[in-house]
């Protein structure tokens, strides 16, 4: 059983544009799958991801069960090399994840 949402990140700056990639480890159960005994596996999916850079929320995503298992998200914003941004995530069971990333 997971206790925390694990977030892997990569962020690279080129000509003032930061391209960030997030890989979040999450089962993303749709609530429609059944286990071996034919019981429904309860719904459990990623809900919100917020990215804050220099006090600005540059990215705030909402996610439903239609997103693949272990969601991959890529986005871009204007930023500088060496700066840091934070990524926060929560899911439908109230689990949270947090990470800080340095732009390369």
């Amino acid at each position: 059983m997971m206790k925390k949402i694990k977030i892997r990140t990569k962020a690279k700056e080129k000509k003032g544009i930061v391209k960030a990639k997030l890989l979040i480890k999450h089962p993303m159960e749709s609530g429609m799958r059944k286990d071996k005994e034919g019981k429904l596996i309860p719904i459990h999916h990623l809900k919100e991801v917020t990215v804050v850079y220099k006090d600005e929320t540059v990215f705030a995503g909402e996610f439903g069960t239609g997103v693949s298992k272990d969601p991959f998200i890529s986005f871009a914003f204007k930023g500088t090399k060496g700066d840091k941004f934070t990524v926060d995530a929560n899911d439908s069971k109230g689990l949270v994840g947090h990470t800080e990333v340095t732009i390369k």
């Binding site: 929320t57 540059v58 995503g61 909402e62 439903g64 997103v67 204007k78």
Partner: peptide, 26 residues
């Protein structure tokens, strides 16, 4: 044609660029 049509919605800040990439289920 998904059971829940809305997959994801991403809100962008003023310094974000309008380009996103993700993987979805169908």
């Amino acid at each position: 044609d998904n059971p829940a049509p809305l997959v994801t919605s991403m809100n962008l800040g003023p310094s974000a660029l309008a380009q996103i990439k993700t993987r979805i289920r169908m």
